[in-house]
């Protein structure tokens, strides 16, 4: 049941990335290219996703616990520390070079572009490395 629900949620997320255009690195890079070929579409992706999540979270939190797990496990940290800023900056640079963040990279895997395969391999290595820093 958990696996089936997880798969359905991942599929929905992936279809959202595709329909929104965020699965296409060209569209992402054009969104980031404010002084050039600017395509503001991705602001609508972030807006639609965040507002939906804001409302839905508050409905979900009315339950004492999630449907398939014993408890909610939500990040509690509020401090702004150096790893947060350094990590976000490095992520931003990588995002600006390749046009992929992690979700769209996974969604692109089955299309098998050589750039995607290389990106996912080094991203996984980077995650393993970053967790040790």
């Amino acid at each position: 049941m958990k696996a089936l629900a997880g798969f359905a949620a991942g599929l929905l997320f992936g279809l959202g990335l595709i329909i929104s255009g965020m699965s296409d690195p060209a569209k992402v890079l054009n969104f980031l290219d404010i002084f050039g070929e600017w395509d503001p579409s991705l602001a609508f992706v972030m807006g639609g996703a965040t507002v939906t999540t804001y409302i839905g979270y508050r409905l979900a939190w009315r339950s004492a616990k999630p449907a398939l797990m014993p408890d909610f496990d939500i990040p509690t940290r509020q401090d702004i520390d150096r790893p947060l800023l350094t990590g976000a900056a490095l992520f931003g640079i990588g995002w600006g070079i390749g046009g992929f963040c992690p979700g769209p990279a996974w969604t692109a895997l089955a299309m098998g572009a050589p750039g995607t395969l290389v990106f996912i391999a080094t991203m996984l290595a980077g995650i393993a490395l970053g967790r040790r820093l």
Partner: peptide
């Protein structure tokens, strides 16, 4: 370029949680 991009995205997102 894509190798560097992936590495930075991986390290950055893991470090920045």
């Amino acid at each position: 370029g894509m190798a560097i991009a992936g590495l930075l995205v991986g390290i950055g997102t893991a470090l920045g949680s």
